[in-house]
């Protein structure tokens, strides 16, 4: 896969390194230090940091502005953008805004339904869906055009990604759905958190059988469990999440004070096992409000130090 953007993440992947990304949720307020502190904790241990976009539909500081804070401190951001809250005008406008700060990575998502968040009575937009958002970014980048057909002065240079949930239903289209995202323009994939390794490996095999692993960089998503309660919550309450009983049991059988450590052990073991799975090109570590644990996970999983590649500007 040839390099198409100045993205450091793309360069690392194209050189064959296992990439490491993580993510930070912006604060429920306007204090820039909240996001900068999180980024400071992890910046030397990851190649790029995703900034979530009003995740779980709870209103927060905008992803774009938090990405700018990271960019200004020399951290490579991945701008997450959901189609829930913006129409095609706002989407193109925000992409240009991000490009004006030389933000070079973007993750295209549809977003959780607003009924989960703090504004359940609000509208959702979904003028585009995540596939069409991928197409839009490509049109803007590769053809230098707006959706309306006009030329863009200084087109954005985004390395474009999408999410994939290997555990979601319907079963029949788990692989076709990825193929469709690749056809729409996804160049990297960050997966849903993986706890069911067997099922993930089965999915990866289907992907490799279709040769899709040669068309897209797949970063396996991992989230360290903090407690047995979190394991149960994710198993039972989070849509599209597959936490096998043996993982829940392992957490529950661990004394409460040792559970955080055990959750990290599971996370490190997961990375170790998935490193050798064909088609896995890196890891996306989502330590939810637990960013301080990311460096330890990266080190223990043998992914430190990170390759030294300077971001272009």
């Amino acid at each position: 896969m040839s390099v198409k953007t100045p993205s450091k993440l793309e360069k690392i992947l194209s050189e064959g390194h296992l990439a490491v990304t993580s993510e930070c949720g912006p604060p429920r307020g306007s204090d820039p230090d909240a996001v900068k502190k999180k980024a400071e904790l992890i910046k030397d241990y990851v190649d790029a940091v995703n900034i979530t976009d009003n995740q779980t539909s709870v209103t927060r500081m905008s992803s774009l502005s938090a990405c700018i804070h990271l960019k200004l401190m020399g951290v490579e951001p991945v701008l997450q953008m959901v189609t829930r809250d913006r129409n095609r005008i706002a989407i193109q406008s925000d992409i240009l805004g991000a490009a004006s700060f030389d933000i070079f990575n973007m993750l295209c998502l549809s977003g959780d339904h607003q009924s989960f968040g703090d504004c359940p009575q609000g509208q959702n937009v979904h003028d585009l869906d995540s596939m069409q958002l991928l197409q839009t970014v490509h049109l803007m980048r590769d053809e230098g055009k707006f959706l309306g057909g006009a030329d863009i002065n200084r087109p954005p240079k985004m390395f474009v990604g999408a999410a994939a949930n290997p555990f979601a239903d319907p079963f029949e289209i788990r692989t076709p759905r990825l193929a469709k995202k690749i056809a729409a323009g996804a160049e990297f994939i960050q997966t849903q958190c993986i706890y069911n390794l067997d099922k993930f490996e089965e999915w990866m095999k289907q992907i490799c059988d279709r040769g899709l692993h040669e068309k897209v960089y797949i970063l396996a998503g991992v989230t360290p469990l903090k407690s047995a309660g979190m394991a149960k919550f994710m198993k039972n309450r989070v849509p599209g999440m597959d936490v096998p009983d043996d993982v829940v049991k392992r957490m529950a059988d661990t004394p409460k004070e040792k559970q955080p450590e055990e959750g990290i052990n599971i996370c490190v073991e997961t990375i170790e096992r998935l490193k050798s799975v064909e088609g896995v090109k890196g890891f996306h570590i989502m330590a939810i409000e637990w960013e301080e644990k990311v460096p330890g996970i990266v080190e223990r999983a043998g992914l430190y130090p990170r390759p030294k590649i300077e971001a272009e500007n």
């Binding site: 339904h113 989960f116 995540s130 239903d169 319907p170 849509p239």
Partner: peptide
Amino acid sequence: AKRLLNGPCGGSSNGKCEI
């Protein structure tokens, strides 16, 4: 619930919608 035109979101589970 999200009027997605190209397939289900990650919240489709056992044939039911995430909401």
